[in-house]
Amino acid sequence: MIELSHVSKRFDEETAVDDISLRVPKGKFCALVGTSGCGKSTTLRMINRLIEHSEGEIILDGQAIEVYDPVKLRRRIGYVIQHTGLFPHWNVARNIGLVPRLLKWSATEVQARVEELMDLLGLPVGEFAHKYPHQLSGGQAQRVGVARALAADPDILLMDEPFGALDPITREKLQDELARLQARLHKTVVFVTHDMDEALKLADHLVVMREGRIVQQGSPLALLQQPADPFVESMLGGLERGLKQAALTRVKDHMTSMGPTLPAQSRIPADFSLRQALSMMLRDHSDRLAVVDQHDVPIGELSLRRIIKEAQLDKGNARE
């Protein structure tokens, strides 16, 4: 869907992006991670032609990017930025309907779509449609920003540190919502962040950048299991890598069927992560947990030994 092939960007004497190659298949979530100035935002902005690349090829949906008219291209790509960029003189409904109106949808179509998106993003229409950006909290404003980006139903969604300006609690909530949205809508997403945990949580494909180059890319699990160099490893949390890996695996994938012994005292729902399982084991001083389903019925068992052994096996089967 999106393909960057040996793409570089130079500003006068500085090289912001140096020979990167990257593929994001349709419907996948790609996260660009790195410290400030590593070129991740520049890369993002080359995709909707806010910046023109100096070398290499960018191919969108099978066509070279030069073929597209830049203005029309941007109307077909959703774009979310950190400080929302909502127009302060328009209310929420009008802000969300911006691109559909630019695309000359009829007023009823726009209205229907705005309401649909507000529902999707958890903003009750009656309460929020007529509010102005300055009347919204940070989290609410960013929801509007995402709704605005999705309004014309683009295939591609570009997000530039969208949750960076929010407090940790709101940030986590919005990350969860984004994950839920993505599971439902399957957009092709390119997401820039400097927060590795956020990237690990959301991405299908993770790209670590440094000084304009891609240091490593792959699935989160693959990177966690085999970081390419100490830089990537430190970005992945160094020693904490193990826990982060565990956070990405579900209990239900590693439980064993119930044995003949009595069920363990502590219960853990099947769709929790291994990291939460480890935490529960520490908390309850137990090396065995009973796995329950959503009705609290025991369906299996999870042991500490199992977790450690599985981790080893997983390394061997690292999926790309």
């Binding site: 500085e14 100035g37 935002s41 520049t42 930025i81 950190q82």
Partner: peptide, 12 residues
Amino acid sequence: MSLLDALPSPRL
């Protein structure tokens, strides 16, 4: 990090 911060400013 805002959009404009990401750009190394082209020095005139």
